[in-house]
Nucleic acid binder design. Structure first.
Length: 428
RNA sequence: GCGUCGGUGGUGGAGUGGUCUAUCACAACAGACUGUAAAUCUGUCGGCCUUGGCCUUCGUAGGUUCGAAUCCUACCCGACGCA
């Protein structure tokens, strides 16, 4: 039995977008779907009950973080990710590939995942293989990546096999191949070099995943998987990650290579991730290039993307899953809240005495019971409820935005919905 | 009434002759955040033009000095102690 099953229900006419159903051992995910990020096996500020209340179907945790703390073997011994965090719906784990970027080339440089064209200082190509001596916590080697723990400075070495082993211990329904997320500032030559590594690592991830004949974890709600005879499927689905920066040739080549990758037994990836390195201006084209190459019948996850405009773009271009820290981070760390008119900074003085909800017609718990003035006051008073109520709103907003995209794909009004939403939504 | 100590920018609190519009923290104001080094970070924070500079500030008023938030005098205010 396959660990996941993906069915397309309806497509957007003359576009790559589609609505579907992804069945996992922990239930169905109606796609396209937004996946809240719970890096350390917790979506910050949210209990699982609250996550369900805002409509979360699935959450994503992180291999690197859980390996460092509390340790993947402890998670395994706790009964797996689901049981440990009391979340019985589907889960995903990222491979640690993003930390190759965030703790490596991007470390201490103010470089983010999305490069805005207005950042001229960041347009200078980084020579990450040459700039010796710069501070970083991740160093890429031939066979893997050395990480210096951001918690205690201890040294750790990740290989594709290690990443997959950790992810097996964590026990998420969907796991990712170990990849190198490159900096948006890297030039084409480096992107090509890094892409070669990502492909080699993808093959090793795939081979190692399928070399494991026993499932080490017994995720809650799933029948225990006994030691298996050869050939039997693991309960976890493995997604391969497409990289290639902003270069069309590299992106298409990467998509083809990942799509065609097989073990000796003919096993392939169960789905795909689209990773890394985007310029705000060509995120769109990169996603389109990739999804034009990837097989239609498998799910695609656009890693780390989640602003409303980008979600519309992704859905229209055939992305099924998105994860992003933006809703929770924006909520928590600056009172930046989503509304249909754009993001608002609740801490601006004008909201001090504003006794209306964040959004009058929002159905979330926060908007049903609290005012802008109250939440703004909570932020100023450094009360933890501020971030919690804001996270509830932002997650509800983004999750329901993507859910609505799904509905409109099915009823054939996606294009109208997109045009209408974007005509009102403006970034400040 | 006498004595002691002290009065610094929204607040707390540094600074005791020049490098002082005056450290720092908080507050305030604004900004950033896209597979979470993040309940974080950045900027502004006396006024006016604005490369750079001008003016006004350290309880009040005088004084000493080339030069004062810093020294002296008087006064005002506060805390504490003694009557």
């Amino acid at each position: 039995m396959k660990p996941i099953k993906f069915t397309i229900e309806k497509k957007i006419p003359n576009a790559l977008g589609r609505a579907g159903v992804l069945e996992t051992p922990h239930g169905k995910i109606l796609t396209p779907a937004f996946v809240p990020v719970g890096t350390k096996a917790t979506v910050k500020g949210m209990t699982p009950e609250m996550l369900k209340d805002v409509g979360a179907q699935v959450v994503l945790a992180n291999t690197y973080h859980l390996y460092l703390q509390p340790g993947d073997e402890l998670v395994r011994d706790a009964g797996g990710l689901h049981k440990m965090m009391h979340w019985d719906r589907p889960t995903v784990t990222d491979s640690g590939g993003f930390q190759v970027f965030s703790l490596g080339a991007a470390y201490g440089k103010g470089i983010s995942k999305i490069l805005h064209p207005a950042d001229p200082s960041l347009q200078i190509p980084e020579r990450s293989s040459a700039d010796e001596g710069v501070a970083r916590l991740a160093t890429i080697g031939a066979g893997g990546v050395s990480f210096r723990s951001h918690i205690d400075g201890s040294l750790h070495y990740f290989t594709p096999e290690k990443s997959i082993e950790i992810q097996h211990n964590l026990g998420a329904d969907i796991i990712f191949a170990f990849d190198e997320c490159t900096s948006p500032t890297e030039d084409r030559r480096y992107q090509e070099e890094a892409l070669g590594r990502t492909h080699a690592w993808a093959k090793r991830s795939l081979d190692y995943h399928h070399s494991r004949k026993t499932a080490p974890t017994t995720p809650s709600g799933v029948p225990s998987t006994p030691p298996q005879a050869g050939g039997e499927k693991l309960p976890q689905a493995l997604f391969g990650i497409v990289q290639g920066g902003r270069d069309e040739e590299l992106r298409r080549k990467s998509a083809q290579e990942i799509a065609n990758m097989k073990t000796l037994d003919g096993e392939t990836f169960d789905g795909y991730g689209i990773g890394g390195s985007f310029d705000k201006d060509d995120l769109h084209s990169a996603v389109r290039w990739v999804n034009e190459e990837l097989p239609e019948d498998k799910p695609r996850h656009l890693l780390g993307i989640g602003e409303p405009e980008d979600l519309f773009m992704g859905v229209e271009n055939g992305v099924d899953l998105f994860d992003c820290v933006a809703p929770t981070r924006n909520a928590r760390s600056g009172a930046s809240l989503y509304t249909k008119e754009g993001r608002m900074n609740l801490l601006n003085a004008e909201y001090r005495n504003d006794f209306s909800p964040i959004e009058a017609d929002c159905g979330c718990y926060t908007c049903k019971h609290y005012t802008r003035a109250y939440i703004a006051y909570l932020f100023r008073a450094k009360e933890m409820l501020a971030g919690i109520l804001s996270s509830v709103h932002n997650l509800y907003f983004i999750i329901h935005l993507v859910d609505k995209m799904r509905e409109t794909i099915i009823d054939g009004t996606f294009a109208e919905y997109k045009a209408d939403f974007l005509s009102h939504y403006h970034r400040k």
